[in-house]
Computed example of a mutant assay.
Amino acid sequence: MAIQGPIPVTFNQVFPHGCYAVGEVEPVKDFEASSNGRFVQARDKHTGELVWQIPVMDADPSLKAAQKTVAVKVLSPVQPVPPAPVAGLPITPVEFDGLTITPYVNGSGRLAYSIKATQMHAPRTSAKPSTKEVAA
């Protein structure tokens, strides 16, 4: 098979309706290296970068409640900082760059995906071109 390792995807492919940060950025524990109360942070197997994670809520209205929250792992040498909260919203809109997915079979035998990113930032606003013609 030609595809090996993480599969590159765009933010809009994974979260076409957007997503919202619903928790804090935390380091991911390397369970094999951590022992006797000593915490060792995980490093990505392909890049060697430290691995952090943040829970996000998928804004897709067709998802069931149990499917809405997923963890996105962010690969970064320093702890990523979520975007500033938006006034009047109880949750923070967020976007990711450098996304990859890795499919795997979870403990219950179902297909699942690990989502990784290289950057986290506030949603970009795109200026839409005017559809009105300018009279000469």
Rank of each mutant, 00 (worst) to 15 (best):
A122G: 12
A2V: 04
T92C: 04
L50P: 06
P6H: 04
Y104D: 12
P6A: 12
H17E: 04
K45L: 10
I115K: 01
P85E: 01
T10S: 10
T69M: 05
T125C: 11
T118H: 12
K45E: 08
A33Y: 01
R43I: 10
F96D: 00
E95G: 12
V25W: 03
F39E: 09
P27K: 06
K29Y: 00
V86F: 00
E24S: 04
P6W: 07
R38G: 11
V74I: 06
H121S: 11
S130F: 11
L111I: 05
Q13I: 05
M57G: 11
V9I: 09
K68Q: 09
Y20K: 12
S126C: 11
L89M: 09
E133W: 06
G107S: 14
I115G: 01
L50M: 14
Q79F: 07
L50D: 08
D30L: 09
G88P: 08
S35H: 02
H17R: 06
P6K: 10
F96I: 00
T125F: 15
K116C: 12
T92P: 05
P16S: 14
M120G: 06
V56E: 13
Q119M: 14
I101Q: 14
V70T: 08
A112W: 11
V134C: 05
M57V: 12
N36E: 08
A71L: 06
S76E: 04
P93W: 03
P16K: 12
A2C: 06
K64G: 02
I3W: 13
G23I: 01
V25F: 03
V9A: 03
P90D: 00
S108W: 05
K29W: 00
Q41L: 08
K68Y: 02
S108E: 05
V70C: 03
V105K: 05
P123A: 04
A65K: 07
A33N: 11
Q119C: 15
T10Y: 05
V72L: 00
S108C: 07
A59F: 04
C19S: 10
R43P: 08
V86Q: 05
E133F: 11
P80Y: 03
F15L: 02
T47I: 15
P103V: 11
G109H: 03
Y20A: 09
R110H: 06
Q4P: 08
F15H: 01
Q119F: 13
V86P: 04
I54Q: 08
S126R: 14
M57R: 15
V78R: 10
Q53N: 12
A87D: 08
G98V: 06
E26R: 09
V56L: 15
P16M: 09
V51W: 09
P77L: 07
S108A: 12
V51K: 15
T69G: 03
V81M: 03
E26I: 02
K116H: 10
R43T: 14
K116A: 11
A71C: 00
